[in-house]
Design a protein around this nucleic acid. Structure first.
Lengths: 183, 183
DNA sequence: TCACAATATGCAATAGGTTGCATAAGGAGG
DNA sequence: CCTCCTTATGCAACCTATTGCATATTGTGA
């Protein structure tokens, strides 16, 4: 039921259509959770049938009506119950590490390529996050921002710490491989 | 097909039964990839039907025969092809961050609890990894170890960097929450 | 002695996620 | 003018993963 609860969080401060929520999964919310538009529509339908969200139709000519969803009182209390549960532990599935383990049959150069590609990805992420930090959080005091923005700050800092750690590790690993110390 | 390829990596240096591979998913390999015994047996059956692994029966009295699986030549080349593909990008699903985003309705104390629980988990991980590093890698030179052990060293270092970053972030976040700076 | 964990396999049902396709109109660029 | 992108929804088939159950023996601790 995790995705359902993520949708409830997305509807916490505003009403939205499935399409708008999908847009959010492509931007900010996508750094927390990812879902396809098919998943979003299917799950919104399920939440509606359970009475956790309700929608009103927005008439449109020539195309299907929009459904603008909002949280119901039941939805709000179901969300609260979920938020109070300790977060579930996710299964570890680290394809890069598995590929490193098979490094003997592909060689050091291939491993360096794989690691460098991920490092560059994380460097971009890091720059993006640091840019957001400078733009929104470095000028003003935390107290002057909305609660939502302050909570986002915690999440942003997590992104920065973890991305930086990955980049640091990748540089070390690439250097060891380059110097022929591993394979 | 990711799990299938992980099983091929597990069979790279040795033959093994489904049960033995499941044991590995509970120990070292579990830090890279996790899978249940049901998944392992099902996937081994599929790999066998595709000719990527083969087994010979080990007779046992009173209980079902063991199947000792080994990599075939086809399996080895399928694995090589997979190892050369750049690792797929995993969907982001960070339940803790989503719960932080909903922090307004549960309050600072609950968020601190959730973050602290994850921090303690990562602190244990970190201690475990640092223990392994001291035991296997601090005494001897990297060159004196097997290739497999050297590759494991890269993975171990990743675990240390990432766990440390999480712990550092968690301490910062807990401190901000404790001082009432967020909610 | 009795219960429970470990060894060793596997099926079935359900839940969750991916991929492909379909519809339909307006606007932008070549 | 024609194609592609964006807006806006959704079904169906498939693949992957989880949960619950089932079997059968040996060894260990209470």
């Amino acid at each position: 039921m995790a995705l359902g609860n993520v949708l409830l969080v997305a509807l916490l401060h505003k009403e939205a259509t499935g399409y708008e929520i999908t847009r959010e999964f492509d931007s900010t919310l996508g750094h927390f959770w990812q879902a396809s538009h098919q998943q979003v529509y299917r799950e919104l339908g399920k939440l509606e049938s359970e009475g956790l969200v309700a929608y009103r139709d927005i008439k449109q000519e020539g195309r299907p009506d929009k459904k603008r969803y909002r949280l119901t009182a039941n939805g709000r209390s179901a969300l609260k119950a979920w938020l109070q549960e300790p977060p579930a532990t996710r299964r570890v599935n680290d394809e890069l590490l598995v590929k490193i383990l098979g490094g003997e049959i592909v060689g050091a150069a291939m491993l360096q390529d794989h690691i460098a590609a991920k490092r560059i990805e994380q460097e971009h992420r890091l720059e993006l996050f640091q840019g957001i930090e400078r733009e929104y959080y470095k000028g003003s005091k935390l107290e002057d921002l909305s609660t939502e923005m302050r909570l986002l700050y915690l999440a942003l800092r997590k992104g920065i710490f973890v991305a930086q750690a990955f980049v640091d590790w990748a540089r070390e690993a690439e250097s060891l491989l380059r110097r022929g110390r591993i394979v």
